[in-house]
Amino acid sequence: MAEIKLEDIIKEENKVFSKTSLFTEKPLSYCPGCGHGVAHRLVLEAIEEMGIVENVIGVAPVGCSVLAYEFMNIDMAEAPHGRATALATGIKRVYPEKFVFTYQGDGDLAAIGTGETIHTCNRGENITIVFINNGIYGMTGGQMAPTTIPKMKTSTSPYGRQVDMMGHPLKMTEIVAQLPGTCFVARHAVHTPALVRKAKKAIRTAFEYQKAKKGTSFVEIVSNCNSGWKMTPIQAIKWLEENMLPFYELGTLKEIGLD
């Protein structure tokens, strides 16, 4: 059997995975191994596959992904901390036929933005919320977040989160799943290929629910924060599996059906 040279394989027609054209040229500003990069890709791939780039408007939060608009080659606004879903509400209300999504971290969505998150979902705004939960404030240097789990060390819970003093972590996804306005609520992760493929399907489903005008679709991605957790990427995803996932169970919490 003739020896197969790499050049025979590496040809345009043999391509089975390539970077979506909806990324801009700008290198991502995220730390090595950060799940944001994968989550960005999944959102952009969903948009690309649905062919809605000319009709999608994104809203970036304040947090590590505040610069999302520099990496996503779509029209985007950057919201004050916690207010992305309010901006998205405004956009969707004046442009009901556009696809509108927010991309937010846990501090943005579940701390300062709690009010907006709950009321946007409760109104059933026909938008998609992509929620990256890494249990910490990454951008500002690793402080305790509303989703920091018990005993988890951060720069503002240096001896671990003591729930009697600092309160309990907030499971926002479970909360919004109970609100009548939400139509599809799921929690996923992106640190293994299988989980990435499931997360991609969920994000795509969320946009399909928006297309079907069923109310608010909400996908949480439990992700790592290597710098904040002070771990290597490989250590971080191991820690995530052993500590975050038991607390933030993956799966679909709500789906009212697309028919």
């Binding site: 004050p80 207010r83 309010a86 509400t89 209300r93 907006e116």
Partner: peptide
Amino acid sequence: IAAINMVYGA
């Protein structure tokens, strides 16, 4: 706060 940010978005 939500109102002004809805204004902002729209």
